[in-house]
Design a protein around this nucleic acid. Structure first.
Length: 592
RNA sequence: GGUCUCGUAGCUCAACCGGAUAGAGCAAUUGCCUUCUAAGCAAUAGGUUCCAGGUUCGAGUCCUGGCGGGAUCACCA
């Protein structure tokens, strides 16, 4: 199906050439939906063409409108307001569009291509449970993966698990110090929470020891250096790097608890990955690459032996790649991981990194370095940068304990969905398993939609009170609308496309117009890596359908053909809503 | 301080590349379940788009200068 943009661009430029003997650059052509206070379906702005037409806006628009309606039967009528040419498409055009939409099983999807895109998201540290900030990351990464796939790409979902380093050593030390017999089983704690609690204990003890040392007369920095528990953590890291069997065994045990805990959370969120990378397995790769880079004069060493890249020519800075002692930093590891991935997936076209915007600079540098190393895919890498999630009373600070834990949040949301379900009329008709299932779907929809509807680039405020709202611009509202279409379909006993179509009423036409835009919406969301436009589209679609539904009889319509047509329309709305929500990682229920 | 980014209705967010009278939801007020699911629909009210200049047929959008918030500028990750 050709998009309106493509169709109108061609026809308009041709018509313009015919009228004025010159073909303007297609870039200056602006096509938009006609605003609802005016008559028409699509609007062309003729202001940019006045230089060529050398006549008044109204004259140019009128001349173009006359020509377009004459030469194209799809364009039935037009009106002109100032420089705006409002075009109305024919009923037949919209009916044909509805038929075409109905024929496509995967309406909205592009043809599959060979290009592979790797999307990295989530990528937690293994020393604490997932929190609200991770959720934005996870939902974005998951949704963008879905959207890219819909746009025809082959997608590999991945994460890099930060399983190594001083942070996990801190948890290990605290474990040995305070409760070496603890297990998730005998404490009844989820593995990631158990390990996270040890990390907190470490920090508390660390602070105590600093205070004691300071009282003994040491400076703050000295106290930090000499606190026994911190010295133990550093020792542990050294032992780990040296491959000490006991240390490695403990590390493996505690990490396995964390993974088991994460798995439960991912499961609850319906999130899957295709391929995992562990920092412990990749951090050495980057070091070799950097050393080679020094030999090839891409990087340089300073007197103290540290290795740097000079990006001042690119408008950036000098950046450290290896410490003076030769150990790797964050950047080194990311270089190694990227190259490892490119080797693992030879058809790789690009990589998408879902990482918060506090690392904007890091990724600018990373991509420049990869380009410097000569990798062609470097220029197609994209940092899916997203803003912070703030709470109504300010930023989340783990130190102050006002972090919203992911598991808690999921549980509270579900309880709320159950409570609110009780007030509903048809709650009694559902079985208890249906109620459970619905509560899960509704609560996840509320959470995911609430986060995804905001433009990723922007900081957002997460108001718990607002997030559990199930009315208005929310995921559950869209689910509810889907269930309505499902209910219509069930009552009708299926869809039929073989009947005599009739002129759509205004409400119907608005819905068809909206459905027609779906492929463009997906393409735009993919091009901009922005699930928010899909979320907004779903909401608008649901809204338009509800308006139609509440103002137009379906089964009480005056004639079998009209009933069939409205059932068909309802089915298409359901299909599009289901697809759209699926792109956001949200399931839709058949009953509500 | 340098660099980047954001500032839109009481609140949370929209507004494609500069286009028409800046749109939704929540909260408030009011109607609609004797018809297909009322987590719905309809209506009212709510704005100097932070401020001051500039560019132009046209600026929430672009430029300059302020004011205010956030991020970043580690041999941390």
């Amino acid at each position: 199906m050709k998009s309106i943009e493509a169709f109108l661009t061609d026809t308009f430029l041709q018509a313009f050439e015919k009228c004025y003997g010159e073909t303007p650059d297609s870039k200056i052509l602006q096509i938009q939906k006609t605003k609802k206070e005016f008559t028409g379906d699509f609007t062309v702005n003729v202001f940019p063409f006045l230089k060529i037409s050398k006549s008044k806006p109204e004259e140019t628009a009128t001349k173009m409108g006359t020509e377009l309606t004459k030469s194209h039967e799809e364009i039935q009528d037009f009106n002109v307001i100032k420089g705006f040419l409002n075009l109305s498409f024919s009923d037949e055009f919209w009916i044909e569009s509805l038929k075409k939409i109905a024929q496509k099983e995967n309406f909205g999807y592009s043809e599959p291509q060979e290009e592979t895109v790797l999307v990295e998201f989530s990528s937690p540290n293994t020393n604490k449970p997932l929190h609200l900030g991770h959720l934005r990351n996870i939902f974005l990464g998951d949704a963008v993966s879905n959207i890219l796939r819909a746009a025809g790409k082959k997608v590999v979902r991945t994460q890099i698990i930060n399983d190594r380093g001083i942070h996990i050593c801190k948890s290990m030390v605290a474990f040995m110090e305070f409760d070496p017999e603890a297990t998730p089983e005998n404490t009844g704690k989820k593995g990631d929470h158990l390990v996270g609690d040890f990390y907190v204990k470490f920090d508390q003890e660390f602070k105590n020891q600093i205070r004691v040392l300071e009282e003994e007369g040491l400076s703050h920095d000295e106290a930090k250096e000499q606190a026994p528990i911190m010295m133990k953590a550093r020792e542990t890291l050294k032992k780990w790097e040296a491959g000490d069997p006991d240390t490695v065994a403990l590390w493996e045990k505690m990490n396995s608890w964390v993974y088991a805990g994460f798995d439960v959370t991912y499961e609850a969120l319906n999130i899957q990955f295709d391929k995992l990378y562990h920092e412990s397995q990749t951090y050495l790769k980057g070091r070799d690459i950097v050393r080679d880079g020094v030999k090839n004069n891409l990087f340089y060493q300073k007197e103290n032996g540290s290795t740097w890249v000079d990006l001042t020519d690119e408008g950036l800075d000098e950046k450290l790649l290896l410490r003076a002692d030769g150990t790797a930093v964050y950047m080194t590891q990311d270089i190694g991981t990227a190259i490892l991935r490119a080797n693992d997936f030879p058809g790789l076209k690009s990589m998408v990194y879902t990482v918060g915007n506090e690392q904007d600079y890091h990724f600018q540098v990373l991509f420049k370095i990869l380009a410097k190393l000569g990798y062609s895919w470097a220029s197609d890498c994209y940092h899916l940068s997203y803003g912070m999630v703030e709470l109504p009373d300010g930023k989340m600070k783990s130190r102050e304990g006002n972090v919203v834990d992911a598991d808690d949040l999921i549980r509270v949301m579900k309880e709320n969905a159950k409570e609110q379900g009780v007030d509903r009329g048809n709650y009694e008709e559902l079985s208890s398993t249906e109620r459970e299932d619905l509560a899960k779907k509704v609560s996840l929809a509320a959470l995911k939609y609430f986060i995804l509807k905001v433009d990723p680039k922007k900081n957002m405020t997460f108001d718990p009170k607002e997030s559990i709202d199930l009315n208005g611009d929310t995921g559950p509202f869209i689910q509810y609308t889907y269930a309505r279409t499902a209910s219509i379909l069930q009552k009708a006993g299926g869809v039929n496309t073989d009947f005599t179509y009739s002129t759509p009423e205004n409400y119907e036409r608005e819905v068809i117009k909206q459905l027609y835009r779906f492929p463009e919406i997906i393409a735009e969301a993919a091009a901009k890596y922005n699930p928010a436009s899909v979320a907004r589209y779903c909401f608008e679609t649901a809204k338009l359908y509800n308006t139609f539904y509440q103002n137009t009889p379906i089964f009480h319509a005056s004639g079998e053909n009209i009933i069939q047509q409205r059932v068909l329309l309802s089915a298409q709305v359901g299909k599009v809503l289901k697809t759209g929500m699926d792109l956001l990682g949200i399931e839709v229920p058949e009953r509500f």
